[in-house]
Design a binder for these strands. Structure first.
Length: 585
RNA sequence: GGGGCGGUAGCUCAAUGGAUAGAGCAUCGGUCUUCGAAACCGAGUGUUGCGGGUUCGAGCCCCGCCCGCCCCGCCA
């Protein structure tokens, strides 16, 4: 039997073929193969139950018929049993486990395997994530989009997709009038030299407060905005400076999180493209004027038949509905994308539902092909009081402060646990562990739910944390260091897997393909996180029970192979989530 | 008022319509002369908010109710 990356898919196909030769009526039977509870096997096929029901047949008898029709190579590779009302259980035989491990010994082989079974392989996918506003520091509210978005990008790329990372920054809007007003009057050049973004942030507050206190100031600020939009050279120069400074500061954060965008096109870029959107929407009868604004209603929708999608404000200005529509059109024309994913706060669900509905009708009426558009929503980061996470004084927590604190906390632990390492290495470890802990805390839970941000749990070495996973990786490298071998060496002459912990670890390793597949099709990275945690747990149990560096050469060889493959899968998986890994910690 | 999401062990969270609902934390008890104890092994903990329904099978799907968070015309 050819060893496929995903054994569940092998079984799916084999069962489909068996169903044909067993005389199951075509089309009505779906094998429904999935990973199983290890107590029952590695995979289970549940499809016989539904099929037997539809045919008014006894499910166990049907299952037996199906199993009897399975190809001999499948019978040889799996222990097949029928259980309960008609589940078919498959346990991978140890020789097949070892063959899979031999066939997937490098990151390239894993990636090729993932691409070979992914329907997204070869497709172009645009991921719209992070998207902060310029002139402001990134804060904790920007964390999830960046972290989840990057993980999704890496998963898609691993599965063979061409990924376009697009940072749709908020660089256009009414706030720039107030900011420019204050910049011209109250710029603190010394503060600007120290930290320009911080100074812009201060100036915005100055402008905003002054506008609120004095209507005359508000008017002046609005004039500054009008001048900017009319292309006034001075205001445009200030605005450009704001963008430059902001992007430079954002990149510091992105570097820590391992993010590199392919394109950064903000709202300003689409400013001259919204007129065409208004015209087309009006021409094809989708948009109408209501209370002075240009709006789209969806009569077939229970809510959006009365809740308008405002595509142009009554003062004639664009809003994010306008630019988002223009952006869809631009992206479709620019890239032949199969889909666009928006990694945005779930509170904006209504907006995206209206956006997608509108875009769908607009494209249909204008004869364009609409790509798959999907809102990858995520919940709020809460403090331990259950309310959105803030500083004690009620301010947003800046991302740079958050990551710095994570690093400091990790540093204290490294100093405590690994005092013997050189200072520079301890600091480097602290950065990987600290930042990785923040990333992993976010990625280890279902993105759609809110989650409670708790430092102690996050940096902790117990439980489903980055530190636990990184520690498992470091211990494996430690074994190879001790034996003066590189991972992958010393595997020749391996004997057959034997002990329960060896076999349990190998069974888990093979399931990497299922975890990647699940995380990528659902676009939920936590499925991969859960898998990696379980894998690290299996490794730790194996490590405790079975000594690797034994004198018996065939035994050592097979255990070295397990170690090397575990490190490979853990490192590959952690990198897919956007984390860096270590060989010592 | 309309709508979205959620409610699972004391706490934080998992669970693709499948088998006896699982982890971690916390609690208690074991395991370091042996590859890193940042670890491992073991123990108890559940009316899956409530009530109906669909299904061979429901934490998951449908209906009603309770509670929490969020959204609902010109911010994004």
């Amino acid at each position: 039997m050819e060893i496929m990356f995903n054994l569940a898919l092998t079984l799916e196909k084999a069962l489909q073929a068996a169903a044909v030769s067993a005389g199951f009526s075509g089309g009505a039977f779906a094998p429904d193969v999935r990973t199983a509870d290890p107590r029952h096997g590695d995979y289970q096929a549940n499809g016989v139950l539904a099929y037997a029901k539809s045919q008014k047949q006894n499910p166990r008898a049907m299952a037996e018929k199906l199993v009897a029709a399975l190809a001999p190579d499948i019978q040889g590779a799996f222990a097949v049993t029928i259980a309960g009302p008609g589940f078919i259980n498959f346990s991978i035989k140890p020789a097949v486990l070892q063959a899979w491990l031999a066939a997937h010994a490098t990151a390239e082989q894993l990636a090729q395997g993932a691409a070979s079974v992914s329907p997204k392989s070869g497709q172009a996918w645009i991921v719209d994530y992070s998207s902060p506003n310029t002139a402001k520091q990134m804060h904790v509210g920007h964390l999830r989009s960046a972290v989840i978005g990057e993980a999704v990008c890496r998963l898609l790329a691993f599965c063979g997709a061409r990924v376009i990372r697009d940072n749709h920054i908020g660089d256009w809007g009414t706030q720039f009038g107030k900011l420019i007003w204050a910049y011209k009057r109250q710029l603190d050049t010394a503060a600007f030299a120290r930290d320009p973004l911080e100074e812009f942030e201060r100036l915005y507050k100055v402008g905003n407060n002054a506008s609120e206190a004095d209507p005359a100031v508000l008017k002046e600020a609005q004039q500054e905005l009008v001048k900017l939009q009319a292309g006034d050279a001075e205001n445009l120069a200030i605005w450009r400076r704001i963008s430059e400074v902001s992007l430079t500061a954002f990149q510091v954060i992105y570097d820590q999180l391992g993010i590199k965008f392919d394109t950064t096109l903000g709202e300003s870029f689409y400013n001259d493209k919204v007129e065409a959107v208004y015209r087309e929407l009006a021409d094809c009868g989708l948009a109408e004027v209501s209370q002075g604004a240009l709006v789209v209603f969806h009569p077939e929708h229970p809510r959006f038949k009365t809740q308008p999608f405002i595509v142009r404000k009554s003062d004639g200005a664009a809003n994010y509905a306008s630019t988002d529509l223009a952006t869809i059109r631009y992206r479709v024309e620019q890239y032949q994308a199969s889909g666009v994913l928006y990694v945005v706060d779930k509170r904006q669900g209504d907006h995206f539902e209206q956006l997608f509905l509108t875009a769908g009708k607009w494209f249909e009426k204008t004869g364009r092909k609409l790509p798959h558009l999907e809102h990858l929503d995520f919940g709020t980061v809460l403090g331990e009081n259950g309310k959105p996470l803030k500083t004690r004084s009620g301010e947003n927590i800046r991302l740079k402060d958050l990551l710095a604190e994570a690093t400091e906390r990790a540093r204290r632990l490294v100093d405590e646990k690994s005092a013997e390492l050189p200072e520079a290495e301890r600091q480097a470890i602290a950065e990987v562990v600290g930042v990785g802990s923040v990333q992993y805390a976010d990625l280890s839970q279902n993105r759609s739910s809110d989650y409670v941000f708790a430092w102690d749990k996050m940096i902790s070495l117990d439980g489903n944390t980055a530190a636990y996973l990184l520690y498992a990786v470091a211990r494996i490298h430690s074994i190879f260091r001790k034996l003066d071998l590189a991972p992958g060496a010393g595997e020749a002459g391996a004997s057959a897997l034997e002990t329960p912990t060896e076999i349990a670890l190998a069974r888990k390793l093979v399931k990497f393909s299922d975890a990647v597949q699940l995380a990528t099709t659902q676009l939920r990275p936590h499925f991969l996180g859960t898998y990696l945690y379980e894998l690290a747990g299996e490794f730790s149990a194996f490590y405790t029970a079975d000594k690797v560096a034994v004198d018996d050469a065939p035994v050592r060889a097979r255990r070295l192979a397990l170690c090397a493959r575990t490190a490979l899968v853990l490192e590959t998986g952690l990198r897919l989530l956007g984390l860096r890994t270590l060989t010592r910690m």
